[in-house]
Structures are given as structure tokens and as C-alpha cells.
Simulated assay, not measured.
Amino acid sequence: MFGLLILVGLSEKVLVFPYETDFSFVALIPQKEMELRAFTLCMRVATELPEERQIILFAYRTADYDELNVWREKDGRVSLSMSGDGIFFHLPPLTTFRSSLCLTWESRTGLTAFWVDGKRSTYQVYKPGHSIRPKGTVLLGQDPDKHLGGLEAMQSFVGEVTDLNMWDSVLSRSMIQAWHYGHKVLKGNIFDWSSIEYELNGNVMVVHDD
């Protein structure tokens, strides 16, 4: 993908993005094509960045579209956008202490929700009938404004990410809460943190999660 070494597995490890850059990111290699009509995306995240700065939390882009982007916006809201205008949620703020953050969406109804520390936001209806296209690139730490390029320091993620998992279905409340509390749940079939394939680029540290 980037001509870098592909690494495998981050069990009990944390990705640390120590400072703002326009070149540090982690590329994640999905276990199956991301041709999705439903998903659950979960991660644990912490940041010291101030509220008035936009932060990319997850970026999946194909050649022409931002297929699936999750942002913390300048006003502190968290947004989901898929190939166009996004939707916005007022969630508890991301802080220096780790939050567990999940996002669920399904095409059939368009029902979309965020989950913070095991609690669900109100549902919003977003893009019913839509499907996410495959053959793109997933990045943590940066938002590619074009395929594999156009990175901006002022959108970069600074902080820690761990335990990122993704499924091609909407998990139940009990499963999301079990994941939040660190219990064993069905392994993510798109991304499973313990066996995830990834590439490091720039100044990203992999540290033991003590």
C-alpha cells in the first residue's frame, strides 16, 4: 500500500500520536472488503487537543469519495459523514481520560447512533439505502483529502487510540456494553485489534497498555 512493513496484532497495545503532523498516520488493512450496508465501529480514544480544533478520528476513503469519516468538530460535536454531508451528535467531550466510542449504522433504516462508555445517543436517520464502497484506504491520525494524499496538520489526531474493532453488522446493546467493559465479544470481522494488520507512517508509537 505504502511500501512499508505490514505489522500484525495490537493486543494490549496503544497507538500514541504524540504531536501534530501532516505525515504521521496508521493505515489499517481490513480483513474483508469494506462493501458495507451496516457496521459497528468501536475504539477507545483519549486526546488533550482543545475543543476548538477539528480532529479526525477515523477516515476511510476511496479514489473519489470520503466513504466513512468520523470527526470531532470545532464546536465539540462528533460527526459521521459518508460520501457527502454528515450528521452531528452532541456527545460527552473527548478528554485526556480514555473514552470508549462506538458508532452503529444500517442502510435498511438509516438508523445511526454513537455509544459513549456503553451509553447510546439518540438515533438519527442518515442515508437509508446507501452502501459504502470497497477498495479504499483506512487511516488513523490523518484525513486524506484525496486518495493517499492531501494531509493537513490542523486536522491530525493527537492522543491515544486502542482497541479498535469493526463489524459488518449492528451489534446489540448488550454486545456493545460488554465490549466497553472489556469482556470477550465476537471478534470484529473487518478489524479485530488483536490480529489487525497495519502500517505505521511517521511518528506514531506502539506502546504497551499498562
Score class of each variant (00 low, 15 high):
135 K>E: 12
88 F>V: 04
123 Y>Q: 08
136 G>S: 05
71 W>Q: 01
117 D>E: 13
98 R>N: 00
121 S>I: 08
68 L>T: 04
146 K>T: 01
76 G>Q: 06
135 K>M: 07
120 R>G: 06
133 R>C: 01
131 S>C: 02
69 N>T: 14
89 F>C: 11
129 G>C: 05
117 D>R: 15
82 M>A: 14
137 T>F: 00
100 S>G: 12
93 P>E: 04
78 V>W: 08
73 E>G: 01
85 D>A: 11
127 K>R: 15
101 L>V: 15
106 E>Q: 15
129 G>S: 06
119 K>S: 11
82 M>S: 15
86 G>F: 03
143 D>Y: 14
117 D>W: 15
135 K>S: 13
78 V>K: 07
97 F>S: 11
110 G>F: 10
106 E>C: 09
108 R>G: 11
107 S>W: 06
93 P>K: 11
143 D>S: 10
137 T>G: 01
148 L>F: 03
138 V>I: 14
85 D>I: 03
72 R>H: 07
119 K>N: 08
102 C>V: 02
128 P>A: 07
115 W>R: 14
92 P>I: 05
121 S>K: 10
108 R>L: 14
89 F>E: 09
71 W>Y: 15
79 S>K: 05
70 V>W: 02
137 T>K: 07
127 K>E: 04
113 A>D: 06
100 S>E: 05
81 S>G: 08
126 Y>Q: 07
